[in-house]
């Protein structure tokens, strides 16, 4: 296949960006999307030109490193699929594909398609954990946890922190990300001790980092590669009101 690409090129955080056009020949349908970009970059490098900067690591959809907007949709057209797991068989010969970085105030562009997502780390830092030191933990089977509860906690804990939810939201809200961690820990007995403090601190940090408010439109859920649902946001809201109203 022959694929045309329109790619956002931006030399650095403070520089202006623009779209540039490229064509990649001999794209095989079995290639992953990132392998198609590797091929483009190989070509640019051989010609002594600056390759397109994009981030990736595991290339299995689990580390959350990859991510950019493909034809207006974070991670591209397939549901519950990171862009590293997207395959070229999804496209047709002659297609033109537009690639842009995540756009959000809290995620400054570093170069081309690479953004800085350290704001997510700082949200977790505000309380996304149980405060237990190594050493004193009781036997792992001391507190039984119903299978359904463990499964629900897992569903939330699956978030890979890629930032697609923020990129999809017109307010650049980080509610889906934050709520997934709040719900994961709120469901488990181990998370109870700090339940109140956690939700208040994480939400406050989220606001301070410059993420926007949630207006419940669900674009985040639609693009989440791990299928994190809006129920998480509902839980967060409940948890937050309960905590805020606590005397």
């Amino acid at each position: 296949m022959r694929i045309h690409l329109r790619i956002w090129r931006q030399p650095g955080p403070d520089a202006k960006g623009h779209f540039e056009n490229y064509t990649v020949e001999r794209v095989s349908p079995n290639m992953s999307f990132l392998e198609m970009l590797d091929t483009l970059n190989e070509d640019l490098i051989r010609r002594g030109q600056d390759p397109v900067a994009f981030d990736s690591d595991c290339r299995e959809g689990i580390c959350g490193t990859c991510g950019f907007v493909v034809n207006g949709r974070p991670h591209g057209p397939d549901s519950q699929t990171t862009v590293c797991q997207l395959h070229m068989r999804r496209f047709r010969d002659g297609d033109t594909i537009t690639l842009e970085p995540w756009r959000a105030k809290a995620f400054p562009v570093l170069r081309d398609l690479v953004v800085d997502r350290s704001a997510f780390d700082r949200i977790i830092q505000a309380g996304g954990y149980t405060s237990v030191n190594v050493g004193g933990a009781p036997d792992a089977n001391a507190i039984p946890i119903p299978k359904e509860v463990a499964e629900q906690a897992f569903d939330s804990a699956q978030c890979i922190g890629c930032g697609a939810c923020v990129a999809a939201c017109k307010n650049a809200s980080a509610m889906l990300f934050t709520s997934a961690k709040v719900r994961h820990l709120a469901l488990l007995p181990q998370g109870q001790v700090e339940r109140t403090r956690r939700v208040l601190n994480m939400v406050a940090r989220m606001d301070a980092e410059g993420f926007g408010p949630c207006s419940n439109e669900g674009e985040c859920e639609a693009v989440c590669p791990k299928g994190i649902t809006l129920d998480n946001i509902a839980t967060l809201n409940r948890e937050w009101w309960k905590a805020a109203l606590k005397p």
Binding site: Y129, T130, V132, V134, A137, P138, D139, A140, N141, P144, I145, P146, K147, A150, E151, A153, F154, A157, H184, L185, L188, Q190, G191
Partner: peptide, 19 residues
């Protein structure tokens, strides 16, 4: 395993709630 459970790692469980 004790440490990880205390951190909230959602390991697979049986119906009786045990790991």
């Amino acid at each position: 395993i004790d440490q990880c459970v205390a951190q909230g790692v959602p390991f697979a469980r049986e119906y009786g709630g045990q790991l």
